[in-house]
Design a binder for these strands. Sequence first.
RNA 1: GCGAGUGUAGCUCAGGGGUAGAGCAUCACCUUGCCAAGGUGAGGGUCGUGGGUUCAAAUCCCAUCACUCGCUCCA
Length: 511
Amino acid sequence: MTNYEEVFKKIVAHAKEYGFIFQSSELYDGLGAVYDYGPNGVELKNNIRNYWWKSMINMNDNIVGLDSAIFMHPTTWKASGHIDAFNDPLIDNKDSKKRYRADILIEEYMAKIEAKIEKEVKKATKRFGDSFDEEQFVSTNPRVVGYKEKCSSIIKRFARAMSDNDLADVKALIEELGIVCPVSGTKNWTDVRQFNLMFKTQMGSTADGATDLYLRPETAQGIFVNFLNVQKTARMKLPFGIAQTGKAFRNEIVARQFIFRMREFEQMEMQFFVRPGEEMKWYEYWKELRMKWHQSLGMGEDNYRFHDHETLAHYANAAADIEFKFPFGFKELEGIHSRTDFDLKAHQEFSGKKIQYFDPEINESYVPYVVETSIGLDRMFLTVLSHSFREEGLENGESRALLKIPPFLAPLKAAVLPLTKKDGMPKKAREIMRSLQTDFNCQYEEKDSIGKRYRRQDAIGTPFCITVDHQTLDNNTVTLRDRDSMKQERVAVEKLHSIIFEKVNIAKYLS
RNA sequence: GCGAGUGUAGCUCAGGGGUAGAGCAUCACCUUGCCAAGGUGAGGGUCGUGGGUUCAAAUCCCAUCACUCGCUCCA
């Protein structure tokens, strides 16, 4: 087993042992690629979401929040293109074990025929020189005409098979064309199967009166259909953004790598509406700003990089990912997409209602262009968890498991610990606890030796341990232990609040 | 979906036809008191599930389920 697999396994085990992440429905042997957040996990997740919300909405005058429903009118997904784009016919080669999209295999086959036509044309150009009439040649040359007829019959047959949902004929077509697997070179294919990435459900309790609905595969559409509502009621002027966080659902064929790729996941998205023609400027602006946001966490600038997309999604004219170095390599964490006016225009067409903005500066109405920033909250959680996890060797030869979470994101800010259960220390510790817990998430613990309690707090990333000892009862001071250095200093009880606040204050991260 | 691997206590694992084990963890009490201490005791498993072979199955056989890793896609 390679080292990173080892480390990743440890992180997953640690996440369970300390109440961060449980597998969904574990009692019933689990549900694939669905996870629950435990007591510490939900705190960390909330803190990350809160940090994002503050930096995107509260710190930007021209971005407002929204919380749209998971269920949306079924036409939404026709307009957005998801019904077509999220529906792929797939086929496997049994020898190479590779999986292909059947439509792409057929396209590639036809590309080869096109190449043959081109070759014929080139040959003929050479032969006839200046007197060559290409148009006439391709419409009369028997070989070229044969190729063309073959192509159009393939297209027709494939289109008919897809619209009739006749997947057996798609397979038959692939077999008749003699398409082989590029890897194994064999024709040993499985049946073609249709994969729809959207979850389907019904609204209405009786079978005959029910409407088919989808669970949203992205939160963005809730923003687009509310564009006018928000723009008008919040009196927003372009350029401005609408942001929201929420669950999205994808019926992944292969959902793996812990919470990296889940079937139910949470997105944090912002759609920024701009004047047409200015989208590339804003695309670059948000690319840079979002990268800065990630790096502000201090988890290592080298652990982030951009990945510019070469092939674009159906809605985009430019797209880049911010990738993070997870234990299993650099993987996408956030996407920044220039979505053009694709979505708003589509909703305009499908709804038959005008979705436009009157721009007083240029005295013109238009459909705005959109630049999107879309980050997976669960993936963000995994970056924090996997980066902060470490096992440290100690001077006495033992080791401690430590989560070096940025303090303002830590599930608990402080643990209040009476050194012993005697001499009124628990009572004093509870008093201190009460004075802090309205502002900071704190935990009181008196079980086990003090060393053991320190280690437990290290393991969940608590920045401070406050220990009440005999001296506390004499002069109202406690020892304050720092998570990372393990150093302790004696401080007055009344200073605790300001010391903790200084350390966990979110303000210095929001620039 | 295909291929490979793994399923025994909360965790890590041993046991491979004859009444279910260890360490750690949990709980109670005693002792101790600044970096995973010691003692005594307790709770917790129909060995993933179903079937077969056998006098007898956690163990052998078949099926099935779940998870992990690889292949496609994405936040």
